[in-house]
């Protein structure tokens, strides 16, 4: 059996994967997920104020993608902070996702308000559904928000990037320069679905974020580009369905991955079985490709 554990920017993961932020939004669900083979668990993004999110429909689906515009529903930092206190520490590293809807000072305020009830922070500068302009589309803004987050915690800081940019390498460099320990990506791609008979966009928010198998090549391309741009580790994801996809992300440069839409329709037990099989399959791929540990695979597609 190959060794699946990884050390990543100050985090130790028993398995090189985790849930994508926004999937399984509550702490009781993440606690349940900890019972299964997952390297870490990631919370839904925490905002300062309570938000109900967008009106339904916030979700649309097709065979090869999902489209969502939940719109940062969150009980707010105080409510969530209290719940975090009850649950932290957890059986697996707990990564808390945060985002400011105003300026970088809010980032600092939220992180400090959580009073250390986390193992790492994932700074979400990339939600396509709530901003007039996505922070992660602007290197200067990304820098400001990353610096503010860096100033608020000494624990590992992950910055999650958007693929909706011209040059994701430039944004990754800005995050690295501003103190990020890890780069994560990709967040969903901005998109839309129109119902032909209803003659209108399906989502009430009209636009949403595309996830699922359809976006995997975009994700692989972005991770490849980020890997060449920065020296810090990367958590990759977007459309991962199986161990082959995980290996592909790793060879592009990801030291670990996140999985989201693949859990579509899976009862909890099946998620456990899926993760079990993912581990076995990844070990087999590692044997086939001559990798003894995860880092033997990371970035190998660059050594041409």
């Amino acid at each position: 059996m190959a060794d699946l554990s990884v050390e990543l920017g100050g985090l130790h993961l028993d398995y090189p994967w985790m849930n994508a932020s926004g999937i399984f939004s509550t702490l009781p669900l993440l606690e349940k997920l900890c019972e299964y083979k997952t390297g870490a668990v990631v919370t839904k993004t925490i905002t300062k104020e309570e938000r109900t999110g967008h009106e339904t429909p916030v979700f649309a689906e097709s065979g090869c993608y999902c489209l969502n515009a939940v719109g940062f529903s969150c009980p707010g930092m105080y409510e969530t902070g209290e719940e975090l206190c009850d649950f932290y520490p957890m059986e697996r590293p707990l990564i808390v996702s945060v985002a400011s809807l105003t300026d970088e000072n809010e980032v600092k305020e939220i992180i400090e308000g959580l009073e250390g009830s986390f193992d790492a922070i994932e700074l979400n500068v990339s939600c396509p559904n709530v901003y007039k302009k996505i922070i992660g589309q602007d290197a200067k803004l990304t820098e400001k928000h990353t610096k503010a987050a860096r100033g608020a915690t000494k624990k590992p800081l992950i910055v999650k990037l958007t693929p909706n940019v011209t040059d994701i390498g430039e944004i990754a460099r800005a995050a690295e320069y501003s103190g990020a320990d890890i780069i994560s990506g990709i967040n969903t791609l901005r998109g839309m679905a129109i119902d032909v008979y209803a003659k209108r966009p399906v989502l009430t928010n009209r636009f949403g974020g595309v996830s699922g198998p359809a976006i995997k090549p975009v994700g692989i391309g972005c991770i490849y580009q980020i890997y060449e741009a920065v020296d810090i580790p990367i958590i990759g994801g977007g459309g991962i369905c199986n161990a082959m996809d995980v290996a592909e992300y790793m060879m592009a440069g990801a030291g670990a991955v996140f999985i989201g839409t693949r859990f579509y329709g899976m009862p909890m037990e099946r998620i456990g079985n899926f993760l079990e099989k993912l581990g076995n399959d990844l070990c087999r791929i590692m044997e086939e490709t001559g990798a003894e540990k995860i880092e033997d695979m990371v970035g190998v597609a660059h050594e041409l």
Binding site: G22, E31, V58, F59, C66, V70, S73, Y264, P267
Partner: peptide
């Protein structure tokens, strides 16, 4: 409920999703 497919977790009832579990 929001997504109805087990992804978003809005319908959590203490570790179960009402829509999928």
């Amino acid at each position: 409920m929001k997504c109805g497919t087990g992804l978003c977790g809005s319908c959590d009832i203490g570790g179960y999703r009402v829509c999928t579990d």
